[in-house]
């Protein structure tokens, strides 16, 4: 029976600089613990957005995600009616309060229980092919926190896969759209006529 179970726990000491936890000098984050360095990092991130804007996207600095969008057939749910690659931009700006943690005081714990095992196999090196029921604990290389405004935008379908939808229905043809946003007006003016 499905139930609410712990999947992930993250514990940290207070953000640097702090007298709690491990000695601060043991962390690489001490390189950026001064107030000036914190401001510099915030400005670097904000500045990177400016670079992307000024370069018309030719020098991308924001994060883009690509995902496989697919729809199950209702009658035979092991089949797909539609499959495409969809991209979306995550645009961070007005970043403030950037603080580093001492990575020696960060503990990340995943619980290798039941159906979580299949998730953990995707990004962890697991020795057991079945759930052990034991927690898996490790430390990251670095940790930080910040406040920001985030836009999730510029979503579009960059490729639609050809899909055979079954008898009696025309197949979905393949199509691609990898034209950069800045090139679209020019392509529309000089380029080939869309089908």
């Amino acid at each position: 029976m499905q139930e609410m179970l712990p999947f992930l726990e993250v514990e940290t000491a207070p953000a640097l600089s702090t007298f709690r936890g491990s000695p601060p000098e043991t962390s690489l984050a001490t390189l950026a613990q001064s107030r000036e360095a914190g401001w510099m990092l915030e400005e670097m991130v904000n500045g990177s957005n400016f670079v992307e804007w000024a370069s018309l996207g030719l020098v991308p600095t924001s994060m883009r995600t690509v995902s496989l969008k697919q729809i199950r057939d209702a009658v035979d749910p092991s089949k797909a009616l539609y499959q495409s690659l969809v991209t979306c931009r995550s645009y961070y700006y007005d970043i403030t309060n950037l603080r580093m943690y001492n990575e020696n005081d960060i503990t990340i714990t995943f619980h290798d229980t039941g159906s979580f095992h299949e998730v953990l196999q995707v990004f962890l090196q697991l020795d057991s092919p079945t759930p052990t029921g034991k927690p898996i604990t490790f430390r990251p290389k670095a940790g930080f926190r910040f406040n920001a405004d985030i836009d999730f935008d510029q979503m579009r379908t960059i490729h639609t896969f050809p899909v055979d939808r079954g008898p009696g229905l025309p197949p979905v043809p393949a199509s691609s759209d990898l034209v950069a946003r800045w090139l679209r007006p020019l392509r529309g003016f000089f380029g080939p006529v869309s089908p």
Binding site: Q70, R72, P77, K79, A80, E118, D164, R165
Partner: peptide
């Protein structure tokens, strides 16, 4: 028909 790509994220409650 085209097969659905299964992963840990698509374990929906499939009919019936």
């Amino acid at each position: 028909m085209t097969a659905f790509v299964e992963s840990f994220a698509t374990q929906q409650l499939l009919p019936p």
